[in-house]
Amino acid sequence: MTVDWWTLGLQAVNVTVLIWLLARFFWRPLAAIVEERRKIVAATLSEAEAKKAEATAEAAKIAETRAGLAAEREAMLAAAREAAEAEGRRLRDDAARDIAAAREAARDQIEKDGIAARGVWAAQAGQLALGIAARLTGRLAPAPLFQSFLTGLAEAARALPPELRAGAIAEESEIAIESASPLDEAAQAACRDALSLALGGTPRLSFRVEPALIAGLEAHGPHFVISNNWRADLARIEAELNHDRAS
């Protein structure tokens, strides 16, 4: 048995070269691609873990937001309920105030209407009284009634201030005597006598008829008017009635 040392050496070199060749063209590329894939898988897994953690955090945040929304909704509902109740209270208060004001206004209006109605009634009553008085005077005897009115007229003339009385009996002055019905000569003479006596002189008189007086006389001097008739009396009564209602 012999050993071919050349062959041994050649084979050693051959296998060494093969080791280098395969290391360069086979093992290294395969190991590199395996390592690259391992890194990519690791990176992908890390990324997936990160995404999962991120998704979990997002889910937690969404759940928190959802819970916050529910709480906010409850708060908004409570606020809206409270506002509605406040608005309702305000509206009820306003309505109560309006009703009270309307009631007060109605009461005032009713009172005003009552006052106006009473005025109308008083006016109508006055008219009725005038009518009644006119009818009654028609039934009374004219002479005593005239004498009574003339006496009152003379007393009122006598009560005038002296300068008015003096003015009334002056030559240029004239006193107009109004009566509800025409006066005859005797009645006119009686008027002239009573006034001369009351004024302290003889006044110049004129006579005219004023049916509105109902009954009685009315003297129109230069600066005075003396009324002694039922129209004046009724007017005075009406004025007093109105004064009583107003007070």
């Binding site: 071919d4 062959t7 050649l10 084979q11 051959n14 296998v15 070269v17 093969l18 060749l21 395969l22 063209f25 086979f26 590329p29 395969l30 691609i33 690259e36 894939r37 990519i40």
Partner: peptide, 27 residues
Amino acid sequence: TAAVLVTWGIMLALALGGFFLTRRLSL
């Protein structure tokens, strides 16, 4: 010798095979 010659053939086959098989590696 024949052993060396066959070894060269094996080297050629393995080296070329390795080269061509790993030429288009992908992920």
